[in-house]
Amino acid sequence: MTSAHIKDQNALNQRIQTEITENPVILYMKGDKTFPQCGFSARVVEILNKVGVPYQTHDVISDPELRFGMKYFSNWPTFPQLFIKGELVGGCDIVANLFETGELQNLLKEKGLLTS
């Protein structure tokens, strides 16, 4: 899959920027909450469900332009990608790490996204 897939990177960047601004917690993943299509994506879904924060997902499998152009936007080559308040928190490794240390929960509380 070459970058020929990306008709207009600027338009794609704008589309992503809007989405991560409008959705305080959004996970770009393969599949969705009920049918994650990859172990790494499933792991982050599981973590977000445990933390209990409301979140949006975006299935990159059904959006090839985004799937191949996202890495130029976020400078991150793999999925899943978790964004909180417009910032990339990381992929599966980092989210799992932050969850185990409790930093993910603190970050969400700091941003007013987690009350409990």
């Binding site: 400078n75 991150w76 080559p77 793999t78 928190v89 990381g90 992929g91 490794d93 980092i94």
Partner: peptide, 10 residues
């Protein structure tokens, strides 16, 4: 940050 560290590796 962890993200920046991993970006260096990527």
């Amino acid at each position: 940050s962890l993200v920046e560290q991993h970006r260096l590796v990527y």
